[in-house]
Deep mutational scan, measured.
Amino acid sequence: YHADPSLVSFLTGLGCPNCIEYFTSQGLQSIYHLQNLTIEDLGALKIPEQYRMTIWRGLQDLK
């Protein structure tokens, strides 16, 4: 799967570019796929713990 530029820029902007593959490997290719994820969902996606809160907060800021 290839990540949408919106996803790449979002995660890169948060300092988490190495997390892109965790999302794309589950078929979550764009920022729209991420918008309703919970902190528990990020854990289920195996996002490293040190990035989960950062990503979750970033998603809240998009709403």
Rank of each mutant, 00 (worst) to 15 (best):
P48N: 03
L42Q: 02
R57L: 08
Q26T: 07
G15A: 06
I31L: 12
L62G: 09
M53W: 09
S30Y: 10
E49L: 09
L45P: 01
C19H: 02
I20L: 12
G15Q: 06
D61T: 10
T24D: 04
M53F: 06
R52M: 05
S6R: 11
G15R: 05
D41I: 00
Y51V: 08
E21G: 12
A44V: 13
Y51P: 08
G13C: 05
T24Q: 07
L28A: 06
L34C: 08
Q50F: 04
Q50M: 13
Q60G: 09
S30V: 02
S25V: 10
Q26V: 09
Q26P: 04
Y22A: 09
D61S: 09
K63Y: 15
L28C: 12
L62M: 12
Q35K: 14
S9N: 14
K46Y: 03
F10L: 03
Y22S: 06
G15K: 08
Q50Y: 03
L59M: 09
E21K: 08
I47T: 02
N36C: 02
N36K: 14
G27Q: 08
C16S: 02
D61K: 06
L59S: 03
W56P: 00
T24G: 04
E40I: 15
P48M: 00
I47A: 01
F10Q: 01
H33V: 08
A3P: 15
I31P: 09
C16A: 05
Y22W: 03
I20T: 10
Q26Y: 03
S9T: 08
G58N: 03
I55T: 01
A3G: 15
V8F: 09
F23K: 00
D41F: 01
G27R: 10
Q60N: 14
L7S: 01
D41L: 02
K46H: 10
Y22E: 06
E49H: 09
H2C: 15
T12Q: 12
A44P: 09
F23A: 00
R52F: 02
P17H: 09
G13I: 05
L11W: 00
K46R: 13
Y1T: 14
P5M: 15
N36G: 11
C19W: 02
E40A: 11
S9W: 02
Q26C: 08
D41Q: 14
G27C: 02
D41S: 11
S9L: 06
Q60D: 10
Y32D: 12
I55K: 00
A3E: 15
S25H: 07
I20D: 03
I31H: 05
T12M: 12
W56K: 06
R57E: 08
T54A: 09
H2P: 11
H33W: 02
L14A: 04
K46Q: 12
H2V: 10
G15M: 02
Q50R: 13
L28T: 04
H33G: 09
L34D: 01
Q60Y: 13
Q29F: 10
L42H: 02
Y32W: 11
T24M: 12
I31V: 13
Y51D: 07
G58F: 01
P17N: 05
F10N: 01
I20H: 08
L45M: 12
V8P: 11
Q50I: 04
K46W: 03
E21Y: 09
P17K: 14
G13E: 13
G43R: 10
H2E: 13
C19T: 13
Q35M: 08
L14S: 02
H33A: 10
Q35T: 07
E49P: 12
E40M: 06
Q60C: 06
F23M: 03
L28V: 10
C16P: 00
L42G: 01
F23H: 01
F10G: 00
R52I: 15
T24R: 07
E49C: 08
S30I: 00
T24E: 06
L28P: 03
L45Y: 13
L7K: 00
Q35C: 07
L11Q: 08
D61C: 03
I47C: 05
L37G: 02
H2N: 15
H2A: 07
Q26S: 10
G58C: 13
G43K: 14
F10A: 02
I20Q: 07
Q26L: 04
S6Y: 04
H2K: 15
L37P: 01
L45Q: 02
Y51C: 07
Q29R: 08
P5Y: 15
E21Q: 13
G58P: 02
A44F: 11
L62Y: 11
V8W: 14
T12H: 11
P17M: 10
R52G: 06
A44M: 11
C19I: 08
G58V: 01
D61N: 09
Y22D: 06
E49I: 03
T12V: 08
Q29E: 13
A3R: 15
L28K: 11
Y32C: 14
T12L: 05
Q60P: 03
F23V: 01
K46C: 07
F10R: 00
E21F: 12
L37Y: 13
C16L: 07
P5K: 15
E40S: 09
S9G: 14
Q60F: 06
N36Y: 04
V8T: 14
G58E: 11
K46S: 09
V8Y: 10
D41R: 08
G15W: 01
Y1C: 05
L11Y: 02
E40Q: 06
T38H: 08
L62Q: 08
Y22H: 12
P48G: 05
